[in-house]
Design a protein around this nucleic acid. Structure first.
Length: 569
RNA sequence: UGCCCGAUGGUGUAAUGGUAGCACGGCGGAUUCUGGUUCCGUCUGUCAAGGUUCGAGUCCUUGUCGGGCAGCCA
């Protein structure tokens, strides 16, 4: 057993190395404590999954713990609805925070006391500059800022003023509490950053208790500190904030976790920013945060992605500091890899073409044995009803078929999966339009089950459903939401919205085998030769089955077809 | 023309001064009652120039390119 574990699948990335070293030298204690700190202002997406798996994964791996903490310091943007969805998504992904569920808002009292301490130490002051003035005084990227005229107020005055801010005596925007650092710092975050601002808004957890709220920088590090976090792992854009993170903790003289930054996930053909995802939702360009085309965890779940596939994906993409752009094909690969092992196979016809077996008795039907999962013998077999009239996929018939087309064509023989060999003898067409309406075929009774006693081979096997027994269902064929590989890189005067794929979903009415009648919401099947389909958790029901295509099977025929049509006829 | 970070095949990611490897992807083939799966083969890489060293993807210098930062957002 231990021999199989000698080669860990996940590679050793730089954060793991730092953690390992720190655990060895015990500079931050003996136990690893990480945290995932979402702001409850939107739904979690696949990019968050990277962070979640990193933080929870590391904790699990090294016998530590990972906290789930909501970074809820801005009541204007945050809502309880988001808290609920985030809890659900993290749990669904397979992680357990145990009793370690926290809210930055739980620390508001402590944070307030911390602020008073800095004032007392002459390291913070109340500033009366207006927002525009603060911006002016801050300077620019290349020019230093200048001191606020209020920078040298006495401690007593600052304390009193800060108390008034808290008591609601000051109007919004009139005053802020600032750290007294250095207006000339080349790092703008150190130019006397704002610690507290006045926001006369009720908070989703603290209600009306507060009308001043700490800024991210004044809340995050201290929250980490209070919880005894050892390694505070965040994304690259906070790199410039680290000196401030360190400054607060040092000047407060409290436990000092180590902040480490890594590059966030980017995926081709999708957008990842919460702002853009919100825009898609609000403009009703998608059906909601859980639209199966969204890269949100709720969308992916509804689409048919499994937690296992997502975790595997997060493991494979690695962790580094350089900006990256992961190809969606890797995500799709991880899904197929997982589902191939587990998804029951079933037959469904998306674009039906009627086939009549002219030498098959009218009143007969039989039950054929279908293998539920060739990758998993324990999944067993099922009975699939067969009769004289069937539906096959329109794509599986071509009137003028090239040599490499192994499916049905006039005069050609194919195997019906688990059924008989059939030969197409007649094509019935609409006289006016020329559209193929029906195929008339003969079947070979000796080939029942899919093998011929004379050993003759057929190149192709196609799927089918019995017309009499089939269930009608809806299938939603999803494709990528954007046509462009890099939707955010749109022309100057256009938005990422212009890169939406107009064919990102096609809804078809299809026929599925009767065994699917009792399929539960959220369960996933492989429609043989087509792809993986998930019973929609919102719209599917007893009256009407609705399936979402999570991902199609790889299709090498399509490739041949594109390259040159599979040769001469 | 400030500060910080980064640069390895098409895309990711390893190699921690000592044979540039793995995965996805592409291409070709074998097997197959899913044109799926599986298996085999194959393709392409250390940003540039100097320096240190017996030896540099790795260390140093300079340059180039990419990213982040001027919310009372996180």
């Amino acid at each position: 057993m231990s021999q199989t574990e000698q080669t860990p699948l996940s590679s050793s990335h730089f954060i793991r190395q730092i953690v390992e070293e720190d655990l060895e030298t015990k500079v931050l204690g003996e136990r690893l404590i990480t945290r995932f700190p979402p702001e409850p202002n939107g739904y979690l997406h696949i990019g968050h999954a990277k962070s979640i798996c990193l933080n929870f994964g590391l904790a699990k791996e090294y016998g530590g713990v990972c906290h789930l903490r909501f970074d809820d310091t801005n009541p204007i943007k945050e809502e309880a609805e988001y808290v609920e969805s985030i809890l659900e998504d993290v749990r669904w992904l397979g992680w357990d925070w145990g009793e370690h569920l926290y809210y930055a808002s739980d620390y508001f009292d402590t944070l307030f006391a911390y602020a008073e301490k800095l004032i007392q130490d002459g390291k913070a002051y109340v500033c009366d500059l207006r927002p525009e003035e603060i911006r002016e005084y801050r300077g620019t990227l290349t020019q230093p800022g200048k001191d606020s005229p209020f920078k040298n107020r006495s401690r007593e005055e600052n304390l009193a003023l800060f108390g008034e801010m808290r008591a609601g005596k000051i109007e919004e925007g009139a005053r802020v509490l600032r750290a007294r650092i250095d207006m000339a710092s080349p790092n703008l975050n150190l130019r006397d950053p704002i610690m507290y601002r006045i926001l006369k808004k009720p908070h989703h957890r603290t209600g009306d208790k507060w009308c001043i709220y700490p800024m991210y920088d004044f809340a995050h590090g201290q929250s980490d500190s209070i919880e005894g976090i050892t390694h505070s792992i965040c994304t690259l854009e906070f790199e410039d904030h680290r000196p401030l993170y360190d400054w607060y903790l040092e000047n407060l003289g409290i436990h000092h976790p180590k902040q480490i930054e890594f590059a966030r996930l980017n995926l081709t053909y999708t957008v990842m920013s919460k702002r853009k995802l919100l825009e898609l939702v609000e403009k009703e360009l998608v059906s909601g945060w859980d639209d199966p085309r969204m890269p949100t965890l709720s969308g992916l779940r509804r689409r048919g992605y499994t937690p296992e596939a997502i975790r595997e994906f997060c493991d494979r993409i690695g962790v580094a500091k350089r900006n990256n752009m992961i190809e969606v094909s890797l995500l799709e690969h991880c899904l197929r890899e997982d589902l191939n092992k587990r998804a029951p196979r079933v037959m469904a016809v998306l674009r039906p073409l009627r086939v009549v077996l002219i030498n098959y008795p009218e009143d007969t039907e039989e039950a054929l044995d279908g293998i539920n999962n060739p990758e998993d013998p324990s999944a067993g077999t099922r009975k699939v009803p067969f009769s004289r009239v069937l539906y096959i996929e329109r794509d599986d018939f071509l009137e003028e078929a090239p040599r490499k087309f192994f499916r049905l064509a006039p005069g050609r023989e194919v195997r019906l999966r688990y059924g008989y060999y059939i030969t197409c003898v007649e094509v019935v067409k609409d006289e006016e339009s020329g559209e193929v309406l029906e195929l008339r075929c003969t079947y070979d009774p000796a080939t029942r089950g899919g093998n011929s006693p004379d050993g003759r081979k057929v190149k192709g096997t196609i799927h089918w459903v019995s017309a009499k027994h089939a269930l009608e269902a809806e299938a939603r064929l999803y494709d990528r939401l954007f046509i462009s590989e890099f939707p955010e890189k749109s022309a100057e005067d256009s938005s990422f919205i212009d890169n939406l794929n107009p064919q990102s979903v096609e809804t078809v009415s299809c026929f599925v085998e009767p065994s699917l009648a009792e399929a539960e919401a959220g369960s996933i099947f492989q429609f043989e030769r087509l792809g993986y389909f998930c019973v929609d958790s919102v719209d599917s029901g007893k009256e009407k089955l609705v399936f979402n295509r999570a991902v199609p099977l790889r299709d090498s025929w399509k490739k041949i077809e594109k390259q040159g049509g599979g040769g001469k006829k």
